[in-house]
């Protein structure tokens, strides 16, 4: 990526007030803070039920200095379409229309509306923060919960199915920009969102977002654990621009280098404690096979 943002030149403008209802050490809070910094003032957010609903505040206090509309769970992509349509009708061309949803709101209940928006090529940015379960309702498994993870609805043996690859599904719509990012790499996230504001058509950014209570780790490790997901090669940072895939930033730097073993990541979180050796090996083999193709 050209002209990478650094801590020193990153804007001090904040669009989020302190004192939100987000949990201590919340990964989404970092993602949200960086995302709206990159979006800037002339943006309208569309938000379905999720932790972000709470983070954005309970009536009559809004935690962000951006206009936002809360919408029903399944309708995010369509509601964002409606905002864009209104902007066109009102000849307000300089506004970023930004849908911002969790993984369940994106890949499970919201996938129909999102798919429709992608197929129509709606001019909007869709940001999915993936904390790998339904956290706002108390950690139930979602389509994007990784295999083996303990949640309140997979409480003993853990989830039996693989993590749904949402960015790949979205990329299959042929939209011009799909990217992944991580709460642990806020500058990379910032640059990707910033880039999305300069592109037309549908832009999709999928952000890996550690959640201390949902993943069972101490609040201070949000960044550490987010980084481990990347460094073990479990979650990869990439961009797909006009169909061309390329790893970015920390993931790109991993190519050809030795990655940390996945156990380093699993051992940091209570949600993986039902994994046995065999399962860990299976995952390690999957990761190795994936990276063999990079």
């Amino acid at each position: 990526m050209e002209n990478k943002t650094t801590i020193l030149n990153l804007t001090e403008d904040e669009f989020v007030h302190s004192g939100t209802r987000a949990c201590t050490g919340c990964g989404l809070s970092i993602v949200y803070r960086m995302g709206v910094k990159a979006l800037g003032k002339d943006s309208i957010l569309v938000v379905p039920p999720s932790c972000l609903t709470m983070l954005q505040g309970i009536y009559p206090v809004a935690s962000a200095k951006l206009p936002s509309i809360n919408v029903t769970f399944a309708s995010t992509g369509a509601a964002a379409t409606g905002v864009r349509a209104a902007m066109k009708a009102l000849k307000k061309d300089n506004v970023n229309v930004v849908a911002w949803a969790g993984d369940g709101g994106t890949g499970d209940i919201g996938i129909q509306a999102l798919s429709g928006a992608c197929e129509r090529g709606e001019d909007l940015i869709y940001i999915c923060y993936d904390n790998e379960a339904y956290m706002n309702t108390g950690v139930q498994r979602s389509g994007t919960t990784p295999k083996g993870v303990l949640t309140t609805t997979t409480p003993i043996v853990g989830k039996l199915q693989e993590k749904k690859d949402i960015p790949a599904i979205i990329a299959a719509h042929g939209i011009d920009y799909v990217a992944t990012a991580s709460a642990a790499y806020p500058l990379d996230l910032y640059d990707k969102v910033k880039k999305a504001t300069t592109l037309s058509g549908t832009k999709y950014i999928h952000v890996h977002t550690p959640c201390p209570p949902g993943w069972s780790f101490d609040t201070r490790y949000t960044i550490k654990i987010g980084k481990l997901a990347i460094k073990t090669g479990l979650f990869d940072l990439y961009e797909i621009e006009n169909g061309a895939f390329q790893l970015t930033g920390p993931s790109k730097r991993l190519v050809g280098k030795e990655r940390k073993p996945v156990t380093d990541y699993f051992n940091t979180q209570g949600r993986f404690k039902s994994l046995d050796e065999e399962m860990v090996k299976t995952v390690q083999d999957q990761v190795d096979a994936k990276w063999a193709n990079y």
Binding site: I69, A74, A80, G82, A89, Q112, A113
Partner: peptide, 15 residues
């Protein structure tokens, strides 16, 4: 469901 979502959002945006 999406048709009404579009209307809800567009109306909230002032159209």
């Amino acid at each position: 469901h999406s048709a009404m979502a579009v209307c809800i959002a567009a109306s909230t945006a002032g159209t």
